[in-house]
Design a protein around this nucleic acid. Sequence first.
DNA 1: ACTGATTTGTGCGTATGTATC
DNA 2: TGATACATACGCACAAATCAG
Lengths: 245, 245
Amino acid sequence: MTMTQPLLHRRAGIALWRQLEQAIGRMIARGEFKPGQQLPTEQALAGRFAVNRHTLRRAMAELEERGLVRIEQGRGTFVQEPVIDYKLGKRTRFSENLSRGGRTPGGRLVRIVEEPARAVVARGLGIPRGATVVVIETIGEADGQRISYGRHHFAKQRLGGIAAAYRQEGSISAALRALGIDNYSRRSTRVIARMPTAEEARHLAQPRSRPVLISESVNVDERERPIEFGIAVFASDWVQLVVEP
Amino acid sequence: MTMTQPLLHRRAGIALWRQLEQAIGRMIARGEFKPGQQLPTEQALAGRFAVNRHTLRRAMAELEERGLVRIEQGRGTFVQEPVIDYKLGKRTRFSENLSRGGRTPGGRLVRIVEEPARAVVARGLGIPRGATVVVIETIGEADGQRISYGRHHFAKQRLGGIAAAYRQEGSISAALRALGIDNYSRRSTRVIARMPTAEEARHLAQPRSRPVLISESVNVDERERPIEFGIAVFASDWVQLVVEP
DNA sequence: ACTGATTTGTGCGTATGTATC
DNA sequence: TGATACATACGCACAAATCAG
């Protein structure tokens, strides 16, 4: 592919590195380099624009400062993937949350299992430990990128029909609506960071060396009775949680 | 040190592993093993109680489930330190936050510097990029344990006196009060997870292999004008952020 | 970057006690 | 009494992670 280079004007009162910054910034904006893609090496780029590598680096540093690229020593320079703002509010619904941010939400069911409630789950749902819970495991996507792996817990005694409803409706909120639970909201949310288990890394298609953000939350109905205990594992490379008071 | 072992009763109608769970749980509760301390190896403990390692592991799994111990493959088993809940609310003040949770807050000043505002900082404070900001770097402690490393940014033009006030008062909120800013609140907070830089790991006295939780927030006055842009780096081993809607 | 030692994780085979039909 | 199923307990071996040198 032959690429016409934007012309650089020397002695025009605008520093070369600024012109470079503008030029490369525009190329990224136009999509000539795609998010996550590795840029040509500094040497190659400097050669292409016929400037010294130091000049190019000055421009690159500025682009990194602006958040357009990410420079990794020993690896290369990459077009920064836009980070997804995931709002933690009283009424957080996955799809709604993303589409409001201009993203295309997606997702798929991993599996639905029944298991005895572990201590944290039992505490969250307000049921005795060991009582049977229905667990719906999902993967959430934004613009085709996997961003979360969620385990949604429901007390079987109260919401045993959730599995069938989910299979019919295809989403948690729709399934709950089908069961007559229209108005639920998030009580408290705890946020922690840790390294992913092998399974979590696999579900998120991310290396085990990158940390994950985890949110644990309880959804309650109008009478403050627990409906769902959810654990969401977010790929920290793609997501930042936003708390709006 | 000679330690009398609680007696285990075989064929008594109570499974051996349950008796083990009770026994070790009580030893932890009595403080024979202190928070954070490594327990003897499974082999050693199994030997001491004269049971098979599998039996001991069954008991340990139960203790981990109860949150009393933390088992790390290749390292050992440790008495779980109580995790600190750090509330992210509209009026978050470090000391108040911790003492409300029954902790003894502490902290110390790392340094105070002036520097040109980077892009994120400038955007947060609503000032032009490159304008001078005063940065107060602090380390926060709870019960003597380092839990956070904070960089608090203030526009020099507006709050140039913050450095002197902080040195006088010893805390951010007191310094702001001394400058006549009594009533400020948190606008939005962004939370991310990543691996710490070498410097961050040093300030938090934690290994570089453990991730950190980072919160970026803007504090505004009554008229919604930005006062402070703060970046707090939390040791994820010790802190979980709690969002109360 | 490699090695060996330590420690937890996992699998399999066997034996025994307990509850049920 | 016997047959069956399940939980408990033990022994051995190896895998996987961690750490020090």
